[in-house]
Design a protein around this nucleic acid. Structure first.
Length: 256
DNA sequence: ATGGCACCCGGAGGGTGA
């Protein structure tokens, strides 16, 4: 089973790139973030005719998450268990096969001095609590993929000196990823690759002129019980070179 | 040193992203 996660930065603007990538890669499961579309306008036909079942939770203009699968999707949960009705659509969870999978879009935090930064930290804590609760509620091992908007260590930022203490690399954010790992979820990519400069996001501004100035902020964290079944993981940087690209690329994992 | 692009909505240009 191959599972991927991709922040597409608008599913409508990215429909060409998304379907091109799906046709080439045909993952069993794809977790999407930043669909930026209300549910009534979600382009379900373009995906369902490729054999994918789809569940999604969207809102106008911002955020929005989805799960595509070539297998039946059951027990869908939107958001956290204690969300307010008007909460941002940043999380969707479902059971596929013998896995409990979540697609997560972590708030970016705007700036470390902005109130949104504290909300980002709180959201990351709530995500960990949610995943632990899901682990207790369901018999299936839990997997979460998404745009975490946090680079975990020095290998994951193009300039550790420039990013030190800044948004996306602040110690308080990195500590939230440490807490997720301490709770028993491992960074699947790092199980197979220790190299620096393997990024999942590059800024639109000056992309071609800048060289490989990116961040690794997209992850697939797997319950530790999946360690032996997890056979490979990677980042597919190619779609960043396509026309009209997302600023993020797909990250993926295979599980026996 | 700074900002640089892309997307949203709405029908101009400001908000947001990372």
């Amino acid at each position: 089973m191959r599972i991927a996660s991709w922040n597409v930065n608008s599913i409508r603007a990215r429909l060409g790139a998304l379907t091109k990538w799906l046709d080439a890669q045909q993952p069993d499961v794809l977790l999407l973030q930043e669909t930026k579309v209300v549910d009534d306008d979600f382009p379900r036909e373009d995906l369902s005719r490729r054999g994918y079942s789809i569940v999604f939770a969207g809102q106008k203009s911002y955020n929005g998450v989805a799960i595509l699968a070539q297998h039946p999707i059951r027990n869908v949960t939107i958001g956290f268990h204690d969300d307010d009705p008007g909460a941002d659509k940043r999380l969707i969870t479902a059971t596929i096969g013998d896995l409990r999978v979540s697609s997560a879009y972590v708030p970016n935090g705007k700036d470390i001095t902005h109130p949104a930064f504290a909300e980002k930290l709180r959201w990351l804590e709530r995500l960990r609590e949610f995943l632990q609760a899901e682990r207790a509620r369901h018999e299936q091992p839990v997997l979460v993929g998404g745009d975490f908007n946090v680079a975990h260590d020095e290998r994951d930022v193009w300039s550790p000196a420039q990013f030190a203490g800044q948004l996306h690399f602040h110690p308080d954010e990195r500590a939230r990823l440490d807490a997720l790992i301490a709770a028993g979820f491992f960074d699947s990519f790092r199980r197979f690759c220790a190299e620096p400069a393997r990024y999942s996001w590059w800024d639109y501004r000056g992309y071609t002129a800048r060289g490989n100035r990116g961040l690794r902020i997209d992850y697939l964290f797997l319950d530790q019980s999946l360690e032996e079944r997890c056979k490979s993981a990677g980042i597919d940087a190619e779609p960043r070179q396509w026309d009209k690209p997302s600023d993020h690329v797909p990250v993926w994992v295979t599980i026996d």
